[in-house]
């Protein structure tokens, strides 16, 4: 009964994720990617960071490491999988989720609190919220602009795969509230199944009361 927080060379939010989960009473451990998933794995987090130095494209190398096959199998068997920031880039690069996270519209690294509107509350990641709720969670990325073809974006919307959108504090989804130029203000999406999700903002940095807000805790409670 443990959540595997998968470390690649250059991951740097793995400890934060373990600490946040532990605070919520959820058993978690860091797992080096070459060691494979432990047999008792009940959930997987692909944490933030700069795996493989973001060489080629953010997440490209990690997405093709052998442990991703194990993670895909685990996801197919119903294990919840969450990609955060670099983990979200890895998720898209590996095909766990659609689209790509690429260079921010303003071509700069952005590290700031943002507001997210909960688009769906009937998923494991958002059971703690109501649809339309606004939560405040930090972002810290240079390549977080969600990009996808118009046709596939329409399908994501039609299939209700969008989990979070960047919004103003009142919940309105506006261009001004879009920190990175993401299509449709998309901050997080679901995979084919609701128990697979990726998002650029960091819920693990908004879980411990001592370091700020706790709006992100609900996302991690999916692993409880």
């Amino acid at each position: 009964m443990t959540v595997a927080v998968v470390q690649f060379g250059g991951s740097n939010c793995d400890r934060d994720a373990v600490r946040a989960l532990t605070h919520l009473g959820i058993d978690a451990e860091r797992v080096w990617h070459e060691d494979g998933l432990p047999s008792e794995t009940t959930g997987v987090i692909l944490p933030g960071g700069f795996s493989y130095g973001d060489y080629l494209r953010a997440g490209a190398m990690a997405a093709r490491s052998p442990i991703m096959n194990e993670i895909r199998s685990a996801a197919d068997a119903g294990t919840p999988v969450l990609g955060v920031c670099n983990g979200a880039q890895i998720g898209c690069e590996s095909g766990l989720t659609e689209g790509a996270f690429t260079t921010n519209e303003r071509a700069r690294f952005q590290c700031e609190p943002v507001h997210l509107r909960v688009e769906r509350a009937d998923t494991p990641w958002t059971a703690a919220y109501e649809a339309g709720d606004v939560i405040e969670v930090p972002i810290a990325h240079g390549e977080g602009r969600f990009e996808i073809t118009d046709e596939r974006y329409d399908r994501l919307e039609a299939d209700d795969r969008i989990l979070f959108r960047y919004c103003a504090p009142d919940g309105s989804v506006t261009e001004a509230a879009n920190p990175n130029g993401s299509i449709g203000n998309v901050a997080g999406i679901l995979g084919e199944s609701d128990h697979v999700a990726v998002l650029m903002p960091h819920p693990e940095r908004a879980t411990l009361p001592d370091i700020g807000g706790t709006d992100g805790a609900g996302v991690l409670r999916a692993f409880a």
Binding site: L56, R57, A60, R64, C92, E93, E98, G99, A100, T102, E147, I148, T149
Partner: peptide
């Protein structure tokens, strides 16, 4: 196709 390019973009 497997690594150098991302067909999405």
């Amino acid at each position: 196709e497997r690594l150098l390019a991302n067909p999405t973009i």
